[in-house]
Design a binder for these strands. Structure first.
Length: 190
DNA sequence: GATAAGATTAACT
DNA sequence: GTTAATCTTATCC
């Protein structure tokens, strides 16, 4: 498989569409490999009031001001981790939230991590995905070209992309920055 | 130093 | 449809 081309992530919105269909591969400490296909993303950039980078660089968001193609991971609502791919050139704070994915490999491990059986509930939301793949602050700033967390280009792009407004935010609610694969059953609801 | 809100989820009524 | 869970960060005294 071919690793992603990070130059495609310079523009957050284009990057969010580029990541659809890509394979996210997680190698766990004790051996098992989990892989999922990205089916839903949202883009955020520095002039966007809904972005964590809107008010400039801080210890929390510093990864997004670094090289594109790294992991920006944040903790929210006192209990959830969310996983993003950094975007934009160095010095410009942008990122792409991975909202949902389709389980491909290691579904048994994901079910164990999520403590549920239903395949359709394993990774159909940003915090669910992070929990299923055991993603937390230890992977903050991780270069996604290296194990234990990597992203590969898809074999083909035989799918249609739908563009809409984002979910679960209160600022810049009219911005079209959410993208998902049409008809995919693992796209989050709401 | 204190407080309010948050790129969510699951469990209720 | 509504709400609790639970804690970090940013913002404002």
């Amino acid at each position: 498989m071919k690793l992603i081309n990070t130059t495609k992530l310079i523009d957050a919105k284009e990057g969010a569409k580029y990541l659809l269909g890509c394979i996210l591969k997680r190698t766990l400490v004790d051996g098992p490999v989990v892989s999922v296909r990205i089916v839903e993303t949202e883009s955020y950039h520095q002039e966007d009031p809904a972005s964590h980078t809107f008010h400039g660089q801080s210890p929390r968001n510093s990864a997004m001001f670094g090289k594109p193609g790294h992991a920006y991971i944040y903790f929210t609502y006192g209990m959830h981790w969310c996983f993003n791919v950094t975007a934009g050139s160095v010095g410009y704070g942008a990122g792409i939230l991975i909202r949902a994915a389709e389980p491909l490999e290691g579904t048994d491990v994901m079910a164990q991590n999520r403590k549920i059986e239903d395949i359709h509930q394993l990774t159909n939301g940003p915090a669910k995905l992070a929990q299923a793949l055991l993603i937390d602050k230890t992977l903050y700033g991780h270069d996604l070209k290296n194990p234990p967390l990597q992203i590969f280009e898809p074999e083909n792009r035989n799918f249609k992309v739908v563009s809409t407004t984002r979910i679960g935010i209160s600022k810049a609610v009219d911005e079209i920055a959410r993208f998902y694969i049409e008809g995919n059953p693992f796209v989050s609801k709401k």
